[in-house]
Simulated scan of single mutants.
Amino acid sequence: MNPRSFLKAMILLMLFPSLICLLLPDTIASIYTKIMLPLPLLIGFVLSLRIASMYKKWLQKSFFFLSLFLLFMMVANIDPLWDIVRSKVGDFIPLIVLPFQVITYSMLVISSVYTLKVMERRGLSKKDWVIMVAMLFIGIIIVMYQMIPLLRHIDLYAIFLLLIRFLDVAIVIMLTPVVLLYIRQMRLEKRESITFTTITCGIILSLTVAYGYEIAFDVPLYVIWHAIYHTGSILDALYLFSYLIIAVGLYVHTKYEEWGFRMIEKALAGG
C-alpha cells in the first residue's frame, strides 16, 4: 500500500464524518459533536505514544509530549467535565481554563523543541520566509480583530479572551517554521515528510478555525463558545476535520515504514 496515496484518500474520507454533523437535527448534532470531538484526540494520544515507542532520543520525546498535548486537548473537549468545573467555580472559570491551556500548549512547545533538535539545517529559504510573513500577517489580523470592543468592556473574561487569542497566534507562528524546517530536513535526507506536515496542519487548523469563523461571520468569540460550538455548525465540522486528520496522520506515520518495505518487496518480487 502506498502510504502517501492512502493518507490523501483518508483525508478526503474524513470529510464525511465531519460534514455529517451539518445534516443532523440540532439535538442529535450536539450529542454527535460532543462524542466525536474528543474521540480522534484520544486515538491521536494513543497513536502518538505508540510512535514515541518506535523512536529513540529526540523524536521519542517529541512524540511523547505531542501525546500529552493531544491528551489535554481531549480533556478540553469533554463538555460534562467542564460543566462540573463551571458549576463549582462560577465566574472564576477563566482562572482554571487559562492555566490549563498554558500547560496544554507547553506540551506542544516542548514537542516542537525536541523536533528541532533532529534538524541539521536551521535556515529558512525565501519561500519559507514568505510563508512566515503571511502567517505573521494572519496572526496580527486575528489578534487585532475584536480587540477594541473587548478593551472597551475590560473585565476578567475579556482579559481571558485576549490572552487565549495571543496564545493561539503565538503557537501557530511557532509551528510554522518547525514544519517548514522539518520538510527541508526530510528532503535533504530523501525521506517522507507528509505525515508530519499533515499532523501539524491539523493542529494549526484546530487552533485557528474559531478565529476564521469569527472573522468570516463577524461573530464574537464568546458567542461562538456559548451559542455555536457543539451545535452541529460548520465550526464543529471544521474542528472535527482538523482532529481527524491529526489522527489519520499519526496512524499513517505508524505504518509508513511497514508499508514502505512492502512496496519495496513487491517491486523486487515483480522485478
Rank of each mutant, 00 (worst) to 15 (best):
I199A: 03
I194V: 15
L235K: 07
T208G: 12
I171F: 12
L181I: 00
L235N: 03
W225Y: 15
V209R: 04
H226F: 11
L221M: 14
E214I: 05
T208D: 03
G232D: 08
L163C: 11
Y211S: 01
Y182P: 07
I203H: 05
H230M: 12
L188W: 00
M174Q: 00
L205P: 12
V223A: 11
L180T: 14
S233E: 09
M174R: 02
P177K: 06
T195C: 13
M186V: 01
I194G: 02
V179Y: 00
I234W: 10
A210Y: 07
T197L: 12
M174K: 01
V223I: 14
F196R: 12
I234C: 11
E189W: 06
V169S: 14
T197K: 05
L221G: 05
T197N: 05
I194R: 08
I194F: 11
L175I: 09
H230D: 14
L235A: 08
L181E: 02
F166M: 12
M186E: 13
R191D: 15
Y229W: 08
L181P: 05
P177R: 00
I171E: 09
I215M: 08
F196M: 15
D236T: 05
F196D: 07
C201V: 13
I199D: 00
D168L: 07
L167V: 09
V178C: 09
C201E: 09
R184S: 15
S193F: 09
L207A: 09
I224P: 04
R184I: 13
A216K: 11
L221R: 10
R187I: 10
T195Q: 13
F196A: 15
I171R: 08
Y222M: 03
R187V: 05
L180N: 10
S206R: 06
I203F: 01
T176H: 08
M174G: 03
I183T: 04
L181K: 09
F166S: 13
P220S: 11
E189H: 11
T195V: 13
L175G: 13
I183S: 04
L207H: 01
V219F: 04
R187A: 08
P220G: 10
W225V: 14
I224V: 15
V179E: 02
G232P: 01
Y229M: 06
I183C: 06
P220I: 12
S206M: 03
Y213M: 10
I228R: 04
R165H: 15
S193A: 15
L163P: 05
I199C: 07
I164P: 00
L205V: 10
I199N: 00
I183P: 06
R187H: 10
V219I: 15
I183M: 01
I215T: 05
I194S: 14
T231V: 03
L175Y: 10
L175H: 07
V209E: 11
L167W: 02
G232T: 04
A210I: 14
I203R: 01
T231E: 02
D218N: 08
I199S: 01
L175N: 07
I203C: 00
Y211V: 07
Y213G: 03
S193Y: 13
T176A: 13
V178S: 07
V172R: 02
I203A: 06
A170D: 00
V169K: 06
